[in-house]
Design a protein around this nucleic acid. Sequence first.
DNA 1: TGTATTAACGCAACTAAAATGCATTAAATT
DNA 2: AATTTAATGCATTTTAGTTGCGTTAATACA
Lengths: 127, 127
Amino acid sequence: MGIVRKTKAVKILLDLFDNGFSAISAVDLVERLKDEMNKTTVYRALDRLEDDGIVHSFVGKSGLKWYAKCKSSCTADHHNDVHPHFECKKCKKVMCLPVEVTIPNIPNHTIDNTAVFITGICDNCND
Amino acid sequence: MGIVRKTKAVKILLDLFDNGFSAISAVDLVERLKDEMNKTTVYRALDRLEDDGIVHSFVGKSGLKWYAKCKSSCTADHHNDVHPHFECKKCKKVMCLPVEVTIPNIPNHTIDNTAVFITGICDNCND
DNA sequence: TGTATTAACGCAACTAAAATGCATTAAATT
DNA sequence: AATTTAATGCATTTTAGTTGCGTTAATACA
């Protein structure tokens, strides 16, 4: 369960997440890191980082898996900080939105997890 | 563009959607209809049905593509009736929720589309 | 109602994301 | 420094979905 060893791969990944990616897809990471580590390593390291609540994942509109660093202290089974993810159809960037989305109460349903995925045009492209 | 001919495949699909599926994944449809039509046919017919605003699609938590029949009159480019989709982790069923979800205003962002995917336990399994 | 047109189909092959098995390597622990 | 085993690399596999192409069948029209 979770990260046990601070390997080179894990350090590189954490460094990438710290240096400004709001969110990045697994595919992008594999491509970007192809000279530094095997794609299997990327997938497995991301899995462990997610297990430890260091990053969270979500699927984009196309079904691709995206990763972003957690803000608050999330754990394996408890992800606080549930925020929408936004994909700009112009610059293709995906980012976490620091906004609260409230889901109306649904009778007799137990809500476990809510994922909100928004597409549109981001502030940067909206000038 | 869209459905032009009422083929056997299209009729079978529409019949399935009418007879009680709240939502069904493409994979499930391919499996369920494997004796009646080719998987390529399933994918292509679903594409056309979606183009015509007869069904809508969304990606589940695992990245699989799901389809459900549209309630209101949706067209190719305009899907009214944007509702959350709910996956029960017990019975694995996915359904459309007849609820409004309001996304808070996000400064300088143009919102194009919003997908809300909720996981939890449905009313049927919650007894 | 028969014939022509072409959308839709079936099949095989392909693509891309992600997972798996296994031998090897390198963190951590002593 | 030696030991332990988590983590890695590489090859292979799995799975969802797509594409090309020859054939079939739904529609239109004579």
